[in-house]
Amino acid sequence: MTIQWETMITAEAKAATALAAARSHARARLIAHVTAAREALITRLPGQDMIYLAKEAEARAWIAATDPDIADYPLLAAEAGLTAPDPGQLAQLWLNMAALWRTTAADLEAARLGTEAAIGAAATAAEIERALEWMSAQPDLQPRNGGRNMAGGWPAPQ
C-alpha cells in the first residue's frame, strides 16, 4: 500500500475549510437579516427609491423657495391634499421621512459593516457566531421615532 502524502488533508486544512464555510454561512445570514430589516421599512415597487429621492429633492426646493409655484413641483402637486393638507406640510413630511430613513439606514449599515468586519476577523466558528448575536437580540432595527416602524406610520410634520 502506498500513501500519497500530497493528497492528504491536514487538520489545519480541514479547520480552514470549516472556518471558510462558517464565514460564508454567516455572511448569508447577515445579508438575509439586513435585507429583511430594510424590506420592513421600504416600499417594494420598481423605481420607488427614485421616487422617494425625487420627492425629497422637491421638498427641499419647495422649503427653500421664497414664493414657490406648485406647477413647478409635480410630485407635490400630485400628492398634496392626500397625505398632508397642503404642499408645505407635505414637503416637511417628506423631509422628516427622509431624515428618519437616513438615521435608520445608518444604524443598519453600521451594524452590517461591523458584523462583516467581525466575521472576517474571527479566528473560530464561535467568534463568528458571537458576531451575529445582535441579530437575535435585535431582530429588526427600529427607526428612532418613538419606536414606531416607518412602515407602520410616520410622525406628523414639525
Rank of each mutant, 00 (worst) to 15 (best):
R23N: 02
H25P: 00
H25I: 04
H25A: 05
H25W: 01
A26M: 01
R27Y: 00
A28L: 03
L30S: 06
I31A: 14
I31V: 11
I31H: 11
A32N: 13
A32W: 01
H33S: 11
V34F: 02
A36L: 08
A36D: 13
A40H: 11
A40Q: 08
I42G: 01
R44L: 15
R44T: 12
P46D: 13
G47W: 11
Q48P: 06
M50S: 15
I51A: 14
Y52F: 15
Y52A: 15
K55M: 15
K55D: 08
E56V: 06
E56L: 07
E58T: 06
A59M: 07
R60Y: 03
R60S: 10
A61R: 14
W62G: 11
I63H: 08
I63W: 08
A64L: 11
A64N: 12
P68A: 09
I70C: 09
I70R: 04
I70Q: 06
A71W: 08
L76R: 09
L76Y: 04
A78S: 12
A78T: 05
E79Q: 10
A80Y: 01
A80G: 03
G81S: 10
T83Q: 12
T83L: 13
A84N: 07
P85W: 05
P85S: 11
P87R: 06
P87Q: 06
G88Y: 08
L90S: 05
L90E: 04
A91R: 12
L93P: 06
L93S: 11
W94V: 03
W94Q: 05
L95G: 02
N96P: 01
M97P: 00
A98W: 06
L100A: 14
L100T: 11
R102E: 12
T103K: 11
A105M: 03
A106S: 13
L108T: 10
E109K: 14
A110V: 14
A111K: 12
A111L: 13
A111V: 03
L113I: 08
E116D: 12
E116H: 07
A117D: 05
A117P: 02
A118I: 01
G120S: 13
G120Q: 10
G120N: 15
A121N: 07
A121S: 09
A122T: 03
A122D: 04
T124S: 14
T124P: 13
T124M: 05
A125G: 08
A125N: 12
A126I: 07
I128M: 03
E129I: 00
A131V: 00
L132N: 02
L132C: 04
E133M: 00
E133N: 00
M135E: 00
S136T: 10
A137C: 05
A137S: 12
Q138F: 04
Q138R: 11
P139K: 01
P139F: 00
D140G: 10
D140Q: 13
L141P: 06
Q142N: 09
Q142R: 14
P143S: 14
R144P: 02
N145R: 14
N145K: 14
N145C: 14
N145W: 09
G146C: 07
